[in-house]
């Protein structure tokens, strides 16, 4: 990360100022012009360093109170093809392959599933189970019971 991008990250990681010209304020605090700021932000959006610019809603406040982390033990030779299909489901917000840690942890595919009730989330999990069935050995769903900490990521 170059010094300009680091200054932009520092000026925005806590969030944008809610003023009529927020980007002007960010540019001033990063010590660059607004045009330079837009060029850097456009580049970071294009290469994926910025995923998106906007609002992060609290799932619970939108009524998505049944948030399950579904975890799946999927055959290694099938996990990438099937993971891509799970990630494309509308109710899945994050989908990753992660390493197994045997013997304590056998699951290699993680999909965050959101529903407005436990029944809705369970139905979503059942849809994933059907999709993975040919390569599936075991699965589980871990429901969150409490948020212990949630802060913006601090990068610079």
């Amino acid at each position: 990360m170059n010094a300009t991008d680091a200054a932009i990250v520092r000026a925005t990681q806590a969030g944008l100022p809610l003023v009529p010209e927020p980007w002007r304020a960010v540019a001033e605090s990063a010590g660059i012009t607004q045009a330079q700021l837009f060029a850097r932000l456009s580049a970071m959006l294009a290469d994926g360093r910025i995923r998106r610019i906007g609002a992060v809603p609290n799932h619970y406040r939108l009524g998505y109170t049944a948030n399950g982390m579904s975890v799946w033990d999927v055959a290694d030779d099938a996990v990438d093809a099937l993971g891509a299909r799970v990630g494309a489901l509308a109710f899945v917000t994050h989908c990753y392959r992660r390493p197994r840690r045997l013997p304590e942890w056998r699951y290699n595919l993680f999909a965050m599933v959101h529903g407005k009730s436990r029944a809705e989330t369970d139905a979503h999990v059942e849809q994933i189970r059907a999709l993975l069935a040919p390569a599936l050995r075991a699965h589980d769903v871990l429901y969150s019971t409490r948020i212990l900490k949630k802060t913006g990521l601090r990068l610079a």
Partner: peptide, 16 residues
């Protein structure tokens, strides 16, 4: 009110 947890750019930590 906590309806939104954040407003601004969302960075990809690994790509950064």
């Amino acid at each position: 009110a906590g309806t939104l947890t954040r407003f601004g750019p969302m960075y990809d930590v690994e790509r950064m």
